[in-house]
Design a protein around this nucleic acid. Sequence first.
DNA 1: CGCCGATGTGGACTAGAGTCCGGTTATGTC
DNA 2: GACATAACCGGACTCTAGTCCACATCGGCG
Lengths: 195, 195
Amino acid sequence: MRERADAARNRLRVLAAAERLFGERGVSGVTMDDVAAAAGVGKGTLYRRFTDKGGLAVALLDERERELQQLMLAGPPPLGPGADPVPRLVAFVQAYLQFLERHLDLVLLSETAAPGARLRTGAHAFWRQHCRYLLDRAGAPDADLRADVLLAALSAEQVRHWREDEERDAEGLAGSLAAVVSALARSRPTGRAGA
Amino acid sequence: MRERADAARNRLRVLAAAERLFGERGVSGVTMDDVAAAAGVGKGTLYRRFTDKGGLAVALLDERERELQQLMLAGPPPLGPGADPVPRLVAFVQAYLQFLERHLDLVLLSETAAPGARLRTGAHAFWRQHCRYLLDRAGAPDADLRADVLLAALSAEQVRHWREDEERDAEGLAGSLAAVVSALARSRPTGRAGA
DNA sequence: CGCCGATGTGGACTAGAGTCCGGTTATGTC
DNA sequence: GACATAACCGGACTCTAGTCCACATCGGCG
């Protein structure tokens, strides 16, 4: 027995209530009590399933993330297999930016609810693994560290800053980050950099 | 009248108490009430001076940051003026990593207390300005965005992850990030990236 | 079909961040 | 040196995240 029938029912009710409330009032205008009340369950039930508010966000994002992950693993190039590493990375960056565009509030919540949360989600491990692999295949040194650098630039908070505080347009941002990807993927300097 | 004498006295008492308590029990083991009580002031006084817990961290960090900033502006090369842009950037990265090494808890607090806090401190604006200037002088395209990318990689949370979760040694990290700096500073690809 | 242990449930409770406001004290003026 | 006023002070208060545990419910088993 993995999950009791009533537990499954409540889990779905919580998810549905959370999605509705977040949509209605925005992520920050909803308390955990609100979610519990709207779902018709107690707070204990809520916290039993979802570690904290961030965990709720992670659960809501889960399905959407899977779609993107599936495209990365088995979809058409350049996002999916078949393309060269750098174009695939660029495609990933663009796809991930679009993903953020649609779910920024939720991702922000999932990444900032607890300190260090961003680096601990399963989804993050997936993106990192993918970037590592492609950077390595592109011949970049320190592929794993550079994957982290790339993903740090794609953190919800950073992207929110670029898009909202600095009002950069989505395409310019994607283009600039594509150039960053190319720079990070290059295997070694061809000469002296700088002046 | 800029600051009443009693207010100044209390500000110093709060700072001294906070520094002592943070040192004794660690940043997360100290509540704002603790600080207020130890300083012999009420909570209202505390919050009047320092917006929130993060603001307290910012104030404590302030003096140390100024030292580093001074070295960057007027100290000996390669950190100070005189060296070429890329070596100066590399020196900044190393110096900033050492700064984090000593004050990680406080910086972490200052960056995570409020969402978006990291990008809003005065110190951050300074680092960003410096990196922008040097990247631009190195001929990098999108110098301002790339400065943000570099600083995102140097966020307290990311560096903490590398040093503590992944147990990377400080020198290896500095070396790898120096290579990243060089890659970001390069003006343009020398050929096709990838295959 | 009724018992029993495992699992789930709800809501009172704790804790800590941040707000508010009536009272207090410093500082400039005469 | 007394007054007016603006700044400051303190601690009670609110709000929300997250914990805890006595009780209810499920579902396998005899």
